[in-house]
Amino acid sequence: MSTTYCLPTRFGRKATGLNPFFAKFFEDFPNLWLSQEGQTEKSFLPRLDVTSNQENYTIKADLPGMNKDAVSIEIQHGVLTLAGEKRQEKQEKDAERTCHLQERSFGAFSRSFTLPDDVDCEKITATCKDGVLTITLPRKSAGTKQNIAITAA
């Protein structure tokens, strides 16, 4: 089973120093991937929303027909990876069934995010309800300034 991947998505900071054309391209990349054209391969990639306020970043993923056991969330080197597999539920006498309409897509997927520096990785929580996964990433309060004294040699 092949897994559908997507480039790591950055959020919480503006792409700087990039030519506006490329900045726009990278911004649109997941959308291009998820467009109707991309669906022809019948591979599944969950649609995501990322929002932020002063306290949290929130990631919401549409995972219809999946429960919490079908997804995993990992953080390594400041990159959060949401992975899982959307399986077609086996029905009785599957081979004998006739398919009239097939719009849903299935398969393994993986999406990654480069986390902003102010995410408190220890306090990340996730819930899954009605096929929507919500990951809450609390932001560290504005860090206290640290003064480093310069000692005379």
Partner: peptide, 20 residues
């Protein structure tokens, strides 16, 4: 998104409605 299948006894329609 909708899938529609049938066997000799039933038509089965499945619709994806995340968050509803």
């Amino acid at each position: 998104k909708i899938d529609l299948t049938s066997d000799e006894h039933t038509y089965t329609l499945q619709a994806e409605l995340p968050g509803l």
